[in-house]
Structure formats: structure tokens, C-alpha cells
């Protein structure tokens, strides 16, 4: 464990909690892409199946359970409890265009052709594009609530911090995983446009609005 990975995990946890609290407190999921949240629930489900097979540490197990639990709770709030506030007209990204290629790639490029490893690879590839429906929805509505931008910022920063974690681990532990690194770079690049808007607008107290 190193400082980048710990702050990355905490940033990820913060993002998940921010979103869950935003929906729960405001009793509304307006502006939130349910499709992205379903993809995140799928990412955690396929990545954390090893909860059933191996124990690494209390931290590892508890964080995984929290992530999976919050992901499904968020999906439940969006599609069941606060379904009436779900903005389906703007959440129209064709997720099959993400899941199918990612699924195919996981079969072609992986470290080991075993079920758990292919599912893990699938989750790594899927996570790198899972935010696209949410970013697409914001580009369609032309704006985002400030709390949603904080959620996205924490979510984007988490994987950027993981990039530094991988540099650290390569240098100090000789550890590196090319699949996770390449997917992590792609994932972070997808947030760059949003980071620019967040830093130049939201941090200056303005609302995040895109030229629709």
C-alpha cells in the first residue's frame, strides 16, 4: 500500500458516497446516468468475485463490500425508489456499444484464459469506459448539478492517483500490470475534458454548463 493508492481508494469511496447521499438526500436522480451506474455495478461484480475465493486483508474485503453494496444501492435508488425522477430521455447512450467490444477484448487480451481472470479483465476494460454514458448525458443536458461535478471529479481523480500508484509500485516493487495501466490511462484521459471544465468553472463558483 502506498499514499497514492490509499488516497485513490478514499477518493473513489468519497465519489460513491457523494453520489449515494446526493440521490438519497435530494430524493432525486436528475442528471444522473442510470446506465453508468449499472455499468459500475457490473464492474464491481465481475471484479470482486474473488471475495468468495480469497482473503487479502480486512481493508481489501471491507472496501470491496462497501463498493458493491453502494453500487447496487445506487442502481436501486435510480431505477426503483426514485424512478420518477430518472431522466431517461437524456440517458440514451447505447451501452451495448461498450459492453460487447469490451467483452470481446477481454477474451482476446488477458493475462490468463481462466474465468476469474477474464472477468477481472472485462471489469478493468469496462471501468475505463463506464463513465461515458454519464458524460454523454451531461453533454446532452448541457449542464450538471455542482454536487454531480464533485462526484465526477473524485471519480476521475481516483484512477489518476492509481496511475501514480503504478509508477510507485513499478519503481519500488517491480510490480506492473499493463492491462490495468493502459485501461487506467484511457479512463483518466476520458475525464480530461471534464477536469478542465471543473477547474476553470466549478472551482470558481460557476455552474458547469456546456455550450449545448
Amino acid at each position: 500500500m502506498n499514499v497514492f493508492r490509499l488516497t485513490g481508494d478514499l477518493s473513489h469511496l468519497a465519489a460513491i458516497i457523494i453520489l449515494l447521499l446526493k440521490i438519497w438526500k435530494s430524493r432525486s436522480c436528475a442528471g444522473i446516468s442510470g446506465k453508468s451506474q449499472i455499468l459500475f455495478a457490473l464492474v464491481f461484480t465481475t471484479r470482486y468475485l474473488d471475495l468468495l475465493t480469497s482473503f487479502i486483508s480486512l481493508y481489501n474485503t471491507s472496501m470491496k463490500i462497501i463498493y458493491v453494496g453502494c453500487a447496487y444501492a445506487t442502481v436501486y435508488l435510480i431505477y426503483a425508489k426514485f424512478r420518477a425522477t430518472y431522466d431517461g430521455n437524456h440517458d440514451t447512450f447505447r451501452v451495448e456499444f461498450l459492453v460487447v467490444p469490451v467483452g470481446g477484448l477481454a477474451f482476446l487480451v488477458n493475462h490468463d484464459f481462466s474465468p476469474l481472470e477474464i472477468l477481472w479483465t472485462f471489469s478493468i476494460y469496462l471501468e475505463s469506459v463506464a463513465i461515458l454514458p454519464q458524460l454523454f448525458m451531461i453533454s446532452k443536458t448541457g449542464e450538471a448539478e455542482t454536487i454531480t461535478t464533485h462526484y465526477l471529479f473524485c471519480l476521475g481523480v481516483y484512477r489518476a492517483l492509481y496511475l501514480f500508484n503504478w509508477i510507485w509500485r513499478f519503481y519500488f516493487e517491480g510490480f506492473f500490470d499493463m492491462i490495468a495501466i493502459v485501461a487506467g490511462v484511457v479512463q483518466t484521459i476520458l475525464y480530461c475534458d471534464f477536469f478542465y471544465l471543473y477547474i476553470t468553472k466549478v472551482l470558481k463558483g460557476k455552474k458547469l454548463s456546456l455550450p449545448a
Partner: peptide
């Protein structure tokens, strides 16, 4: 291509 131990990252 990956060097390292088990999957201990989240």
C-alpha cells in the same frame, strides 16, 4: 505482460 503478486488492488 505483468509482473507482480496477486490482485491486491481494488
Amino acid at each position: 505482460c505483468s509482473i507482480g503478486g496477486e490482485k491486491d488492488e481494488l
